[in-house]
Amino acid sequence: MLDDRARMEAAKKEKVEQILAEFQLQEEDLKKVMRRMQKEMDRGLRLETHEEASVKMLPTYVRSTPEGSEVGDFLSLDLGGTNFRVMLVKVGEGEEGQWSVKTKHQMYSIPEDAMTGTAEMLFDYISECISDFLDKHQMKHKKLPLGFTFSFPVRHEDIDKGILLNWTKGFKASGAEGNNVVGLLRDAIKRRGDFEMDVVAMVNDTVATMISCYYEDHQCEVGMIVGTGCNACYMEEMQNVELVEGDEGRMCVNTEWGAFGDSGELDEFLLEYDRLVDESSANPGQQLYEKLIGGKYMGELVRLVLLRLVDENLLFHGEASEQLRTRGAFETRFVSQVESDTGDRKQIYNILSTLGLRPSTTDCDIVRRACESVSTRAAHMCSAGLAGVINRMRESRSEDVMRITVGVDGSVYKLHPSFKERFHASVRRLTPSCEITFIESEEGSGRGAALVSAVACKKACMLGQ
Rank of each mutant, 00 (worst) to 15 (best):
K13M: 14
T168R: 10
L266W: 01
Q465W: 02
T326S: 10
S76W: 04
R186G: 04
K12M: 15
S411P: 09
Q98L: 04
I348N: 02
F330K: 00
G249C: 03
L144V: 11
T376A: 13
K291T: 09
S174Q: 01
G388F: 02
V154T: 10
R63F: 00
S340P: 02
L185A: 01
V452A: 10
A176R: 04
K414D: 15
T118A: 10
D278F: 04
C457T: 13
T255Y: 14
Y61N: 04
I390V: 06
V154D: 11
V207K: 00
R7D: 08
E236M: 01
H424R: 12
D278I: 03
D4W: 06
N180R: 10
A232P: 04
V408D: 01
E236Y: 00
T362Q: 04
E52W: 10
E290P: 08
I211A: 00
M462C: 07
E67W: 04
L463M: 14
I126A: 13
S321V: 09
R275G: 06
Y273K: 03
I130V: 05
M197S: 03
Q337S: 09
M381F: 11
R308K: 02
E128V: 04
R5D: 08
I348S: 03
V154G: 07
R303S: 05
C220D: 00
H141L: 05
F74M: 05
E421C: 10
C213E: 01
S151G: 08
L88S: 08
R369L: 07
L165M: 09
M8N: 08
N283M: 15
E440T: 11
G464S: 12
G117P: 06
M57E: 02
Y125R: 13
Q347H: 05
S445K: 07
D158Y: 14
G72Y: 00
I130S: 02
E435W: 13
G81C: 15
V226L: 05
G261H: 02
D42Y: 10
G385V: 13
M115E: 10
T405F: 01
N179W: 12
K90D: 03
L288F: 14
N231S: 05
G72S: 01
E67L: 10
P111T: 04
M34W: 04
K420N: 05
Y297F: 13
L415A: 03
D267I: 12
L45D: 03
L355W: 08
D363G: 02
Y297L: 15
R186V: 07
Y413D: 08
Q38K: 07
T255E: 09
W167M: 13
M107K: 10
A454V: 11
I439R: 10
L276Q: 14
L307S: 06
D262K: 11
S396A: 07
V241F: 01
G170H: 15
R429A: 15
V310S: 10
H156K: 14
V33C: 06
A454K: 14
G261I: 04
M107T: 07
Y108N: 14
T405A: 02
D4L: 02
D124F: 04
R63E: 00
T431P: 01
V86P: 02
D113E: 06
D400R: 07
Q98S: 11
Y234D: 00
D217L: 01
M34L: 05
M115T: 05
E272S: 04
E242Y: 04
E372A: 03
M121R: 12
I110D: 04
L75F: 01
D205Y: 10
N231V: 05
A10G: 11
L292H: 10
A450Q: 15
V277G: 05
H156A: 15
S263T: 08
T342A: 03
E395A: 12
S263E: 07
F150E: 15
G448P: 13
H424F: 03
E95W: 09
L315Q: 00
Q18I: 11
L270N: 04
E67Y: 08
G175V: 05
L271F: 01
A10V: 14
K90E: 06
E17D: 08
V367F: 04
L276H: 10
C364Y: 03
S411C: 10
R392S: 08
F150T: 14
G444V: 07
G356V: 02
E290Y: 14
R7C: 14
N83L: 08
A53E: 04
D187R: 04
A21P: 09
A21I: 14
H105K: 10
E272K: 12
E421H: 14
T228I: 03
M202Q: 04
G183T: 09
V367E: 00
A387R: 00
A450R: 14
L288S: 14
V199S: 08
N180G: 06
T65V: 09
E242M: 01
A119E: 10
L304S: 05
G170L: 15
E67V: 06
F316M: 13
G170Y: 15
N391V: 09
D247S: 07
D124M: 03
S433V: 08
V16N: 11
C233F: 00
G227K: 02
G328Q: 15
S127P: 08
F84W: 04
F123C: 13
R428S: 15
S76N: 04
M381N: 04
V62I: 05
K296D: 13
A320T: 08
E290V: 12
A114C: 14
Q286V: 14
R36Y: 03
R63S: 00
V199H: 06
N254S: 04
T118Y: 09
V412S: 09
E177V: 10
K291Q: 13
Y61V: 03
S418A: 06
L88V: 05
F316L: 14
A370T: 08
V338R: 00
E95I: 08
D311K: 13
I366K: 04
I293M: 07
G343W: 01
R394I: 10
S360M: 04
L307I: 05
D78V: 07
R303N: 01
Q347G: 08
R368W: 06
L75R: 00
E435A: 06
E268N: 09
S100K: 11
T60A: 01
F148Q: 07
V412Y: 14
I404S: 04
E331N: 11
N283W: 14
I189H: 02
R377D: 00
G92V: 04
F150I: 11
I404H: 02
L357N: 05
G318A: 15
H317I: 14
S174T: 02
L451R: 14
P432F: 08
R155V: 15
V226Q: 05
L451E: 13
H218L: 01
I110R: 05
E443D: 12
G117T: 07
G170M: 13
A378F: 04
E272F: 06
K291V: 10
I19G: 05
K140L: 10
V71C: 04
G81A: 15
C129T: 10
V16W: 15
K136N: 07
E435F: 13
R85E: 09
L122K: 06
T361D: 08
N391Y: 11
I225F: 02
Q138E: 12
G249Q: 00
H156Y: 14
K291I: 14
